[in-house]
């Protein structure tokens, strides 16, 4: 599913909203989520999951072409932990497929 397919699906179900509004709402939510993580804050959505930042300490890497050592600064990377409902629902589909 892509962003435009998500917008399409929501527009069909939220028929009281104009397509344009659904499009803006999806973009607005994703922007806010990205902005939140970019400012170092967590996101917690019950039943879906949480997003947080994981610290990566500085390390010495290598330029794969020349083999030269390069110093890489510490950084943060986004991390997602699925919530209970999402975990259970996804795993249930697997059980159904296997039976």
């Amino acid at each position: 599913m892509t962003k435009s397919e998500l917008i399409e699906a929501l527009a069909q179900k939220q028929s009281q909203l104009a397509y344009k509004d659904v499009e803006l709402a999806v973009k607005s939510m994703l922007d806010l989520m990205a902005l939140t993580l970019a400012s170092g804050e967590r996101i917690e959505i019950r039943g879906f999951g949480s997003f947080s930042l994981h610290y990566r300490p500085p390390r010495t890497g290598r330029n794969p072409k020349t083999g030269d050592a390069v110093t890489l600064a510490s950084k943060y990377v986004p991390h997602f932990k699925p919530g209970k409902e999402l975990r259970e629902r996804v795993n249930k589909t697997r059980s159904k497929e296997i039976l």
Binding site: K3, V26, F48
Partner: peptide, 29 residues
């Protein structure tokens, strides 16, 4: 409407994952 929309947004993502699909949200992940 706003509260319902937020719920519907995450429910749509759950349905997509539940039915085995990948979700690609450009600019996000």
């Amino acid at each position: 409407e706003a509260k319902e929309f937020v719920e519907a947004f995450y429910e749509e993502l759950r349905i997509a994952l539940e039915t085995g699909g990948q979700i690609k949200l450009s600019g996000f992940g």
